[in-house]
Design a protein around this nucleic acid. Structure first.
Lengths: 347, 347
DNA sequence: CTGAAAGCGCTAACAG
DNA sequence: CTGTTAGCGCTTTCAG
């Protein structure tokens, strides 16, 4: 029977040495066209694929990139955000012939367990870290272990790092300006957790935008943990101070906020306009359709991969922060169409 | 400076041979307590971790399990189903000290590309395949390549395979019986795609349940591609034949169906009762709250991992199909509370 | 219970 | 352009 398929065996069948086969497999230039053809024929005929572990051991590169997602009690996985992110990362990796290793850690497992699993030599070449808290200790550990990494978010680290993020501040600011333009007078805010960079940035961006427009928020601020439930109870509380507009820091919380508005027998957008951040809930999912500051999650995932790849290849050596612009997608909850009609701007 | 950390070096520092260190690392029994302690001390002091690739090469086991998710244009990733599944699989793997490699393939990449990437020797020990179509060619390819695998779903394969699935038929049947019990007379169905086992089973289970209860469906059947939009348009069509109840084959389609009902100025559950399948959309997400046949997605993911692990360890050798029961979770859209009130059953 | 020795399949100088 | 020669770090017989 056929011997186990390896470089040696392929070489034997093609009448060349193991090294030559290796060169063909790796697309190195210094192989004669004729030899190359012969070897490729044998490879095609046998369906040979080089052994990944052997290759990793010899080359000290695994071709595997880790994606670390700390999932707090599974909450995060109900958010379409991560699906999009994974899809983007995955696409980029398929194109680069890289393999994605996914590390999801619940709260019950401690930080050091994460590290020791991920920083296993010979397992991954580098990692992408998501959902980072401000000053995430994970980042320091990764650095101590000399593991190349890229952060998704805006890390608050004393050291410079590679990172990819959406323009949370700018996006939130645009929501504030939009409210101002629509003539809303009593804006409110439901911010994401302030121990995350997204939470901090979306909050400050919105407040800055209001200040710019000369609007004040007068304590109409609440914070929620990304979920529908949090959005609903935060909104219920805010309604006591009669806001006429609310910027909600995530799509999921906005869904809850809409429910609270409905339960109070108020109308959105007539009584309270709503703009959310994310733009990733399917538009048909809620009524009225959600106006939101959309961030390009998929692109963020893709870019994180290409940036890490560049770091691994030594193509980029200085800290680099990529920031993607957001886009205010106007649908129904902000009441823009309404305002347009009233002022006679619309046809 | 410290030499590169490996078995040899740890052995040198502990005054033993490389083999002994290997035995300690792998928890083999035949090591004296004293030697073991000494070696462990050195390991703890140095933070040594064995090189994954080297270990894989020598032992012919990678400790990595692949999860294959064919994502059609990203549609599937908007569904919380996959997040849950990944979470379950991931949990199980963390417990078994296994690493998860995620393979997401869009439609643009063909089947053989999937195979050649996944079946790379020395990369993964086995794979879990999801979202399988009926008679999925992927399965045959996996078998041809001698790659151990477990299917999530009910594969329609001429060969026996290992699989894990939810009781789609039984769950759908229970929805039918529930409608009958509530006195609904004109049931309708929005089924998932019939080229998937879930689609086939949910459809037949529902129809069987109706037949059992003596209800007929009279052509009030549509099919949708899992999305909100599909549910909405299917429901809009069905309304022409005045159904008083509809079983929708997925949570997302049910969200769309609810919208269509509202847009037709009908009330749910008064005019049309709705029961969906999945039970994974956060309960607070829609109003009225969705009654649905819940499937234990996380458990399915966990079980797929433990089954594959057993297969890899040779603990199970005959084809095995694990089927998880579903649970009808009654909330508001089915109108059970309503019916109870009318008949005086409720307080 | 412990050590020595032989690979696992591949890459990477180094010759030629 | 091609072959030879050493390893990469670990597991795994086989002796002792």
């Amino acid at each position: 029977m056929a011997a186990r398929l390896n470089l040696e065996e392929i070489g034997r069948r093609a009448g060349v040495s193991r090294s030559t086969v290796s060169r063909v497999v790796n697309g190195e230039p210094n192989v004669s066209a004729k030899t190359k053809r012969k070897v490729e024929a044998v490879i095609a005929a046998t369906g040979f694929r080089p052994h990944a572990a052997a290759r990793s051991l010899a080359s000290r590169q695994t071709g595997v990139i880790g994606l670390i997602i700390p999932s707090e009690a599974g909450t995060l996985f109900n958010d379409p955000y991560f699906g999009r992110l994974i899809l983007g990362a995955s696409d980029a990796m398929n194109g680069l012939d890289l393999t994605l290793a996914l590390f999801v850690f619940g709260e019950e497992i401690d930080e050091s367990a994460i590290i020791s699993r991920v920083v296993n030599p010979g397992l991954v070449d580098g990692v992408i870290v998501t959902a980072t808290r401000m000053a995430d200790p994970l980042i320091d550990h990764l650095r101590d272990a000399h593991m190349p990494f890229v952060v998704i978010g805006r890390p608050d680290s004393p050291h410079a790092v590679y990172s990819v993020d959406a323009d949370n501040r700018g996006g939130a600011r645009s929501a504030a300006l939009h409210f101002a333009q629509l003539g809303r007078q009593r804006p409110a805010l439901i911010a994401p957790p302030s121990n995350t960079s997204a939470g901090v940035d979306r909050r400050s961006g919105f407040l800055d935008g209001l200040a710019e427009a000369g609007l004040s928020i007068d304590g109409r601020v609440r914070e929620g943990d990304w979920t529908e439930g949090a959005g609903r109870s935060a909104m219920a509380e805010l309604l006591a101070s009669s806001p006429d507009a609310v910027f909600v820091g995530s799509d999921r919380m906005a869904v809850g906020a809409l429910q609270a508005i409905r339960e109070a027998n108020l109308q959105c957008p007539q009584d309270v306009a709503v703009v959310s951040f994310d733009g990733i809930i399917p538009a048909d999912m809620v009524v009225p359709r959600l106006t939101s500051v959309a961030q390009p999650v998929r692109e963020v995932g893709e870019r994180a991969v290409s940036l890490l790849k560049a770091v691994l290849d030594g193509d980029v050596t200085k800290a680099e922060s990529v920031v993607f612009p957001t886009e205010l997608v106007i649908r129904e909850t902000c009441g823009a169409a309404l305002a347009a009609t009233e002022t006679g701007t619309a046809s």
